Amino acid sequence: MTSPRRILPFVLAASVSATACARFPELDARTADIDPQTPYPALVPLDPLLARVADDQITEDTEASIEARVAALRARAKAMRSDVIDDETRTRMSGGVAR
């Protein structure tokens, strides 16, 4: 019986050769749609970008502001689920349809 140590190099070689046969997408075809005259994006300093991120940090007021926002959204959703037409108007409309 052959030992696993002797078989291991052959198994590795077979698996590497099998993956080497994989087809890759044509990368040249992907760049065909890019206009060569398009300028490169402007480089910006990193500090102003990091400063904007610092403004979005969680503070002591974050929980209260989120809860207030949730309450406002729930109230808005409740108003949307209510009847659009009041009872008086609905009665008047039903009378017009019955004629």
Rank of each mutant, 00 (worst) to 15 (best):
G96C: 13
E67I: 07
I66V: 15
I66L: 15
T38R: 15
E26A: 14
L8W: 03
P9G: 10
D33W: 06
D61N: 04
F10M: 12
R99S: 12
L43K: 11
F10K: 14
V84N: 05
M80E: 04
I58Y: 03
F10C: 05
E26G: 12
R23D: 11
I85D: 00
L49Y: 05
A51K: 10
A20Y: 03
R99I: 10
P45N: 09
R74N: 12
P45L: 12
L43M: 10
A68D: 09
Q37C: 12
A54D: 08
P4F: 05
T91R: 15
E88H: 08
P4M: 05
Q37E: 14
A64E: 10
G96N: 13
L73Q: 13
E60S: 07
T62A: 10
P48H: 01
T59N: 05
Y40S: 12
A72C: 05
R69A: 14
P36W: 00
S82N: 11
R69G: 15
T2I: 14
R5G: 11
R23S: 13
A68L: 10
P41L: 14
V84R: 08
R76A: 14
S94F: 13
R81I: 03
G95P: 01
V70Q: 10
A71I: 03
T31Y: 05
P41S: 13
D47G: 08
P4G: 11
A42F: 01
T31K: 04
R76M: 09
G96T: 02
P48W: 01
M93Q: 08
A64F: 03
D83N: 13
P25S: 09
D87F: 01
L8D: 07
A32N: 02
E60Y: 01
S82Q: 14
R99N: 11
D47H: 02
A29E: 07
A77S: 09
E67S: 10
L43R: 14
L46S: 07
I34K: 07
R23H: 08
R81A: 11
A32L: 08
P25R: 06
S15V: 11
F24N: 11
V70F: 06
M80V: 06
E88I: 06
T59E: 02
A51N: 06
L73N: 13
A42C: 01
A22H: 07
A68Y: 00
L49K: 02
S65V: 04
E63M: 09
A32H: 02
T31E: 05
T91I: 13
V44F: 00
P45W: 01
S94P: 00
S94E: 12
T91H: 03
E67A: 14
I58Q: 01
R81Y: 04
E26T: 12
L50P: 00
Q57S: 05
T19Q: 13
A75G: 14
A13L: 15
A32R: 09
A79D: 06
Q57W: 01
D61I: 01
R69N: 12
D83V: 09
